[in-house]
Nucleic acid binder design. Structure first.
Length: 803
RNA sequence: GCCCGGGUGGCGAAAUCGGUAGACGCACAGGAUUUAAAAUCCUGCGGACUAAUAAUCCAUGCCGGUUCGAUUCCGGCCCCGGGCACCA
């Protein structure tokens, strides 16, 4: 007998909806708070993916257990609604992207409700809603006010035909991925956010959050703090100077040439007449390469001599200056000192260009550069020192000479914040005719997107917003001006949304201060590992900024983070339309029900692991749920119900409560579920079924499969909503009732087992040893041998060592 | 090349302060029930050798080491996945 999942599930979803069961009273401070959050989805046209369902079920189950444990739970959802697909749809159909977006959101909402997620629907937010982006713009203006937003020329991949800048991955062989149009690297004026000012704070914060170690490491590497030295080189026969950053100041006496990045501002001036042609050619060849290709050329270090020479400030040695694309303009100073003897890249480059080697650390450099620690030689006052002391001595000397200093350097770059799109938050800045910038006053926010007659970029490559007359022709206090026609990136809206859920309808502030203080930070945040760096770093940056403004009390947004793994197609490949291996949650719900889908996804393995979709998985989950349901609805079982205790079930019953409580807390649903199955199997074998166990079983399964659990609860005769019933507790003493099984080994090989009292004392363990030696298998194994010693590990093993 | 994960039956996995490897489930096979099927129930299910659910041996990517005992710890290697901005 199977239950009709459609009827039962829709029945309870209607109750939850009609009675607004999941509406959170955020002002109720009488209970401890618990804020559990999903990364909000981009509302694509294809709808929800089974991968979303995995993360969302994990948080929903946690939210439901926490409610039962007496917490006031905040569990909201929203939509990251700005984005490229909507814009492309709008261009194609000449329709405002909001229409497309709204349609998709309605579909997402239907699917999310049909999965029985316990979201507070009165808190749904959309980043494209003016009442939301009003505050995104507000934060931008605050950043601007605090000198953290600025305009600067940045080298970007610009595609004139598409009228937009492309990401590295969208450029293939110098052509755009879409359309195959030529792409050029050109400097463009772009808005940037000074995330680098927060580098140290972002680094320090990593110590206090409970995140996967791999994600913390990735963020740490991304910020890439390194301590080193700035060395000022002068150019021979010239008043020009350039600086290099090095972490190996100890090797400065070994410097035999310098390399500038092809984009370095001094390249032109330092190129001599005879080298002009070769240099120009080289620069051109670099332009054609994408960043990715430049990176790929790791094997061979290319470069060209400029014709000029630099003077090493430490010993006045004259060394040639090259340009080479293995030096990046975006890291350090865009120039390096090269020490072929002690840096492998320089070693290879110098070999190729027949440049001198000077060994300054006593070592063997016949095969490769020596990059380790050692005794310094050929280094005047630094001779005899080790690396660290030499760095110090040489840097101190440079300071004395006025030719250098200690310097902390970061890999992290400022955040490029402009997009040449329509479908994004307008940047609330007006460019006045006199060249000054006019920030839109706070009380004029939101600055709403204008309607356009069409959404394409202009023919001359300006962003779509430049088409609106009211946008590019404004007058501020008698000055003519033009509004910023770039919009913000999609990251903007997702960098602070977690805070807006707390007080989403507040029109005077991001949120009521006392609510923000109470509810932040998010206690548990779940989302894909692909956001390990960008989103999760940007959100931390904005949070810390708003903390410094006094808006947020805590200084980290997400206390605990989990990543959900990818769900792959049943062929083990990434699910994609083109491979035809996608699975729609709608399909699975239709056939097996939402509870079966939820149960399968939580049972199939650890949440953070990527796993292929198993077509039979939900079927197996439904089979278990039918089996579960029969205990409550099938007369054969109902007639076995009893109010008495059934001692032989005590252990599994109490252990199941313990296991679920502990495992669910840390999102280890798979092992909790298997223990529920063990208990259900035990009940099936019993000829009496205690009602109190059936009652607690509905509660234990409820977080994962809320519909069927609520139904069974009702079948037991209860009328309440399970969400606010008490989470079961267990009796510790009942866990001791089961005797322990000792394994008996001879020389490490298993020879048998003995059931024995749990936590036996020393004299009892002597008896255990005796009975172990009595086992037939043990006797046989010991035949002709002498027992050397017997090791007993309490509650686990008796190990007999014999010769 | 660098960084971070991971490798256990036909499949998903469980067990890691070192202690009975494979819990739980999927798939499969046999049986019961049924006119039949579905559903359900029972049984088996890493491999070898077996009449055997007797014993023994081999098995947690590979090779070594430590140990009474290693999936777990150490050293070396191979493979798979993810990330990357040659980071000076």
């Amino acid at each position: 007998m199977g239950y009709d999942h459609k009827i039962i599930e829709e029945k309870w979803e209607k109750v939850w909806d009609d009675e607004k069961v999941y509406k959170t009273d955020v002002y109720d401070f009488s209970k401890p708070k618990f804020y559990v959050l999903d990364m909000f989805p981009y509302p694509s046209a294809v709808g929800l993916h089974v991968g979303h369902v995995e993360g969302y079920t994990a948080t929903d189950a946690l939210a439901r257990m926490k409610r039962m444990q007496g917490y006031n739970v905040l569990h909201p959802i929203g939509y990251d609604a700005f984005g490229l697909p909507a814009e492309q749809f709008a261009i194609k159909n000449n329709q405002n992207p909001s229409i497309y977006t709204e349609k998709n959101i309605a579909n997402f909402r239907r699917q999310l409700k049909r999965l029985g997620f316990s979201y507070d629907w009165d808190r749904q937010i959309e980043t494209s809603d003016p009442s939301y982006y009003k505050w995104t713009q507000w934060i931008f203006l605050k950043l601007y006010e605090n000198d953290l937003a600025y305009e600067d020329y940045r080298l970007v991949n610009y595609c004139p035909a598409l009228g937009t800048v492309l990401a590295n991955e969208e450029v293939i062989d110098g052509k755009s991925e879409r359309g195959g149009y030529p792409v050029e690297r050109r400097p463009m004026k772009q808005w940037c956010l000074k995330i680098t000012s927060y580098a140290d704070k972002l680094l320090e914060g990593l110590d206090e959050i409970d995140w996967p170690q791999s994600t913390i490491n990735m963020q740490r590497n991304w910020i890439g703090k390194s301590k080193g030295t700035i060395v000022k080189f002068s150019v021979q026969n010239s008043d020009k100077t350039f600086e290099v950053f090095t972490t190996r100041a100890d090797t400065l006496f070994g410097c035999t040439y310098c390399v500038l990045a092809p984009e370095h501002p001094l390249v032109k001036e330092l190129t001599t007449e005879e080298q002009k042609e070769a240099v120009a050619e080289y620069i051109k060849s670099c332009e054609a390469k994408s960043d990715l290709e430049r990176t790929d050329l790791a094997k061979e270090k290319t470069g060209v001599f400029l014709g000029s020479y630099a003077v090493n400030p430490i010993n006045d040695k004259v060394v040639p200056i090259y340009i080479g694309d293995y030096v990046l303009s975006t890291y350090g100073t865009g120039a390096v000192m090269a020490v072929p003897a002690h840096d492998q890249r320089d070693y290879e480059f110098a070999k190729k260009h027949h440049i001198d080697f000077i060994k300054v650390i006593d070592s063997d450099i016949s095969e490769s550069a020596f990059e380790g620690d050692g005794t310094h030689i050929n280094s005047q006052f630094a001779n005899g020192l080790d690396n660290e002391d030499a760095k110090k001595a040489i840097t101190e000397k440079l300071i004395e000479l006025g030719k250098g200093n200690y310097k902390v350097n970061y890999r992290l770059r400022d955040w490029l914040f402009s997009r040449q799109r329509y479908w994004g938050e307008p940047i609330p800045i007006v460019h006045l005719d006199d060249g000054t910038l006019y920030p839109v006053p706070f009380d004029e926010l939101p600055l709403k997107l204008p309607e356009l007659s069409d959404y394409k970029p202009t023919g001359d490559g300006r962003p779509p917003l430049s088409k609106a007359a009211e946008w590019v022709d404004v007058s501020i206090d008698g000055h003519k001006g033009e509004r910023e026609t770039n919009t913000m990136p999609q990251w903007a809206g997702s960098s602070w949304y977690y805070a807006r859920y707390i007080d989403p309808h507040n029109n005077e502030a991001i949120g009521d201060k006392k609510l923000l203080d109470h509810w932040l930070p998010v206690d548990v945040y779940v989302g894909g590992a692909e956001h390990a760096v960008l989103h999760l770093l940007y959100a931390r940056f904005w949070h810390k900024f708003l903390h410094d403004l006094g808006i947020f009390k805590c200084d980290e947004p997400f206390k605990k983070l989990y990543h959900q793994g990818l769900i792959l197609g049943s062929d083990g490949q990434k699910m994609s339309k083109s491979l035809g291996n996608t699975v729609s949650p709608d399909q699975v719900i239709e056939e097996y029900g939402a509870d079966a889908l939820r149960l399968y996804e939580m049972f199939k393995g650890p949440v953070d692991q990527s796993l292929p979709w198993s077509p039979d998985g939900p079927k197996g989950a439904k089979r278990f749920l039918d089996k579960f349901y029969r205990l409550y609805a099938d007369q054969n079982f109902v007639s076995l119900w009893t109010d008495e205790e059934v001692p032989e079930l005590d252990y599994e019953y109490n252990f199941t409560i313990k296991k679920c409580t502990e495992d669910f807390e840390v999102l280890h649903y798979n092992t909790g579920i298997s223990q529920i199955m063990i208990l259900v199997n035990a009940i099936y074998k019993s000829n009496k079924i205690p009602k109190h166990i059936l009652l607690d079983l509905t509660k234990l399964l409820f977080p994962l499969c809320p519909h069927i659990s609520q139904e069974c609860y009702q079948l037991l005769g209860y009328t309440n909503i399970l969400d606010f019933e008490k989470w079961p507790t267990y009796d510790e003493t009942k866990l001791l009732t089961k005797p322990v099984t000792y394994a008996v080994q001879v020389n490490g090989k298993l020879k048998g087992t003995i059931e024995f009292k749990k936590d036996a004392d020393d004299s009892e363990l002597e008896e255990l040893k005796k009975s172990a030696l009595e086992l037939d298998n043990v006797k046989n194994a010991l035949c002709g041998k002498v027992v050397n010693k017997i090791i007993v590990v309490k509650n686990k093993i008796v190990s007999i060592v014999a010769k």
